[in-house]
């Protein structure tokens, strides 16, 4: 099935898109995919550690949604549903593939501020990604949702099916663990941030 969202759905509420998708309108579904594929993919990438698995997980989430849109009980919570499905899918996949290679785990953004800076930036980025990959699963999940995807702690708690207090605790431990594991290169990393113009 080849469909493009087109512009007719731009600005349409998620609930209306979902309702149209439930009736078989693939262009409405394409608009939903355009809106939410990226966050689902990023979350899966932070949990799986590689691009191929992350794309597979994101795809599975949307195929599951297409097959049965009624799974989403409240249209307003669609993004949360997608993120929970992505999270669960990624964790399942991660558990099946405990031996994911580090090479895949350190794929980084292809922003191109300049050749030398790219190498330094990629190395710094790879180091941080590697340290994050060593965090316990739940800490990574909380960090990905709250820090990288800007979910509030209550939303993150709903997605992870836990309490706000547990989310705060996970975030505190995650940041402390990262600081500890990167303490030897903290200053270099900060210099790298400066060099990248951040």
């Amino acid at each position: 099935m080849s469909v493009a969202p087109g512009r007719k759905w731009a600005g349409t509420a998620d609930g209306d898109l979902l309702a149209s998708a439930a009736l078989g309108d693939s262009t409405a579904f394409a608009e939903l995919a355009t809106r939410y594929y990226a966050p689902a993919y990023r979350l899966a990438w932070r949990l799986c550690g590689n691009q191929t698995d992350a794309e597979d997980v994101a795809q599975e989430v949307f195929v599951k949604l297409w097959k049965d849109p009624a799974q989403v009980r409240q249209a307003a919570a669609l993004k949360g549903w997608i993120m929970r499905a992505a999270s669960n899918g990624a964790i399942d996949r991660l558990r099946r593939r405990k031996t994911a290679s580090l090479d895949e785990a350190i794929e980084v953004s292809d922003a191109q501020p300049g050749a030398v800076t790219v190498l330094e930036g990629n190395a710094a980025s790879a180091r941080v990604v590697s340290a994050m990959a060593a965090l316990p699963e739940r800490q990574r999940q909380a960090l990905a949702l709250v820090y990288y995807e800007n979910f509030g702690n209550a939303e993150a708690a709903a997605i992870m099916e836990t309490t706000v207090e547990a989310i705060e605790s996970l975030l505190t431990r995650a940041r402390k663990s990262l600081r500890d594991s990167l303490s030897g290169e903290w200053r270099d990393l900060l210099d790298g941030v400066t060099a990248l113009g951040k």
Partner: peptide
């Protein structure tokens, strides 16, 4: 400082045709 270091870990951009592939893979209703 910790925030700026976390910012280094940007997720890679997904394949340009990822969404098109996804839509093409949807089973028929």
């Amino acid at each position: 400082e910790a925030d700026s270091i976390l910012d280094l870990a940007k997720a890679p951009v997904y394949s340009p045709d990822a969404i098109a592939n996804l839509l093409a893979s949807l089973p028929s209703r």
